[in-house]
Every structure is written in C-alpha cells, then in structure tokens.
C-alpha cells in the first residue's frame, strides 16, 4: 500500500496538473482567472508562481474563443488543460467542444487527434440559480468522441486528472464546487493513476445496488447508512467515468443484489441514468426483482430558493425512498 497524504479536493486536482506539467512541457493550463487570481475557486493556486505566465494563461471571458484556440493547439501537439470556471459557461463554447474536439480524429481519418482536458465546476453550486447550475453530463454524454470523468473523492480527482492529461482523446472533467473543500487521503506518487472505465465499490451490500458518480455518491453513502439501520443492505458503486462506462461492474453487482437504483444529478430525459437503466434492463432482465429505479434532478430549471433547490437535487431522502420502493419495502 502506497503512502497517502491528506489533501483538499481542489489541491488534489492542482497537484495532478502540476505533476503532469513538470513531467511534460506540452501540458499547459488556460482559462479565466487561472493565473494571477489563482483560480476563481483556487484550484490553480500557486501554479503561476511555479510555471510562469507562458504556461499558466489567463484568458478573457471568451469561452468559444479560448476553447477553440486550445483545440487548435492540441491538434498541433500540445496538451492543454482548459478551465471553465463553470461548465455552465461551456455552453457558449458548444461548437468547439462538441463539434470540433470530439470529431477531429474521426473526420481527419485518424490524422489529427485532440489531446485536451476541459475541466471545471459542474452541477448545483449552492443557490446559483437557473443558468449557473448545469449538470452538463446529461447533454454531453450523448456525444461520441469525448470521455467524461466525474470524480467523487480527492484521491480519484487526482488519479483521474492525471489519466485525463495523459489521455490522447478529449476529456471532459466535471468537478463539483460543493466538493472542492472536501478532504481525503490521496496516494502519494507521480504515477498513481486511476484508469478510466473502472467503477469503484464504495460500500458492499446484498439487497440493492445504488450506482452513481460525482457528488451524489456521498448522498448514496448516507442513504446506505440509514437504510442499513432498516435492515436493507445496499451496495454503492461509484462509476467515476460516464464515457467509458463500466456497465460490467453494475451488471455484476445487480446479479448479486437483483435491484438497481441509479442516482444522477442531471435531468432524467436522455441522461446517463436513462442509458444505464436501458442497458441493465437489457443485460439483467431475468436477474432483476423490480424495474430499475432512478433518482434525478427534478425536471425543471434550477430554482434559487434554498428549500426548492434542496428538493430539486437528488438527496438522501429521495434515494432512501427509491431503494425502499425498489426492494418492496415502501
């Protein structure tokens, strides 16, 4: 077992980027406020001091421009990391990030890849209102050619970020503002990577599988704890990446528990959650004791009011209700 150190989630991401920048001069970071301001959310704290303004680059508020610029740089062989202060702002860069980056390799017949990482806050940040609370995985998981990473712990954030930077394909790395201050033990070592496409069992159980990714994993753990007191044993799976999707891990768990609840903080219609449900219904039709249950963000724009936002998001209560329903304990 390798040594670990306690790190905040944001510093785990920073350490991953810094280590990769020391390792490879082709890696650079650009985005709004990443340099002199030390990051709007302090993720890139100290990086300007170490790497200087040629490699830590402040951009104007110009998402379409700098996202496209970074893609051009990646085509030529650099490995840019691009910070979106919020993934909500990536929508004005939809053409470069969805129409250029994921298609370059394909439409050039394999000649030009796009080794780039787009990263930033995804999901509700805390009363940010309708336009700043996007969970873009619902939209973007529809697009082939990108990889989507949604870590839930500091250790995963670091290991997955390092994998993302070394990856030759465009990676969308979705952080949660609400997790950035979370502390956790992170393995020490420049080559401790977490592979894409490998789900992690966060808690073992026998009655119901709860599959999730990103921040809601923690709600799932709370729910599992509460349900254990009611005699319902839950297995919590953290998928960690949506593309590639470790459907095999969910399938194996469902064969054991015969029940599945998916917790997904994007809207339900045409979402990663609905895709997982469809695939599990297909693969585990005879193993399931009930249809797959899903807990999503409510199908409305994000509200501002605190109480409404709490009810809008997946939460522990809703997960408990879904598990009770799935296991006929409602």
């Amino acid at each position: 077992m390798s040594a670990t150190q306690e790190l905040e989630f944001r510093d785990a991401i920073r350490d991953a980027m810094s280590e990769e920048m020391r390792r490879d001069k082709r890696v650079m970071l650009m985005g709004e406020e990443v340099a002199e301001y030390n990051g709007a959310y302090k993720v890139s704290r100290g990086m300007l001091d170490e790497f200087g303004p040629r490699r830590i680059i402040d951009t104007p508020i110009s998402e379409s421009g700098f996202a496209g610029m970074a893609i051009g740089a990646a085509m030529l062989g650099l490995r840019p990391v691009v910070e979106f202060m919020s993934w909500s702002f990536s929508l004005v860069a939809a053409d470069p990030i969805l129409n250029n980056a994921p298609k370059m390799l394909f439409m050039s017949g394999g000649q030009f890849g796009c080794p780039i990482v787009f990263r930033g806050n995804d999901g509700a940040g805390g009363q940010l209102g309708s336009t700043h609370s996007w969970s873009v995985e619902g939209l973007f998981s529809n697009v082939p050619g990108i990889k989507i990473v949604i870590p839930s712990t500091p250790a995963d954030a670091k290991g997955l970020m390092k994998t993302a930077i070394r990856d030759d394909d465009p990676v969308f790395f979705l952080e949660s503002e609400r997790l950035l201050g979370m502390k956790g033990e992170v393995p020490v070592g420049e080559d401790v990577l977490v592979k894409f496409g490998q789900a992690c069992v966060r808690r073992e159980g026998t009655d119901c599988t709860i599959a999730s990714w990103g921040r809601p994993v923690h709600f799932c753990m709370e729910a599992a704890e509460a349900l254990a007191k009611e005699g319902i044993s839950c297995e919590v799976l953290d998928l960690r990446t949506i593309r590639p999707l470790d459907i095999g891990a969910i399938e194996r768990s469902v064969r054991k528990t015969s029940n599945l609840v998916i917790v997904d903080q994007s809207w339900s219609f045409g979402s990663p959650g609905s895709e997982v449900a469809a695939q599990i219904h297909q693969r585990c039709f005879d193993d399931l004791d009930n249809h797959v249950h899903r807990v999503h963000t409510e199908d409305v724009p994000a509200p501002y009011a605190f109480n409404l936002e709490q009810e809008y998001l997946p939460n522990t209560r809703k997960i408990c209700e879904a598990v009770r329903s799935a296991t006929y304990n409602a």
Partner: peptide, 8 residues
Amino acid sequence: PLGAGLAF
C-alpha cells in the same frame, strides 16, 4: 479560433 490555437 483553431487558427489562433495553431499559432499559439
């Protein structure tokens, strides 16, 4: 923007 990025 791609052209700017190639030059970058």
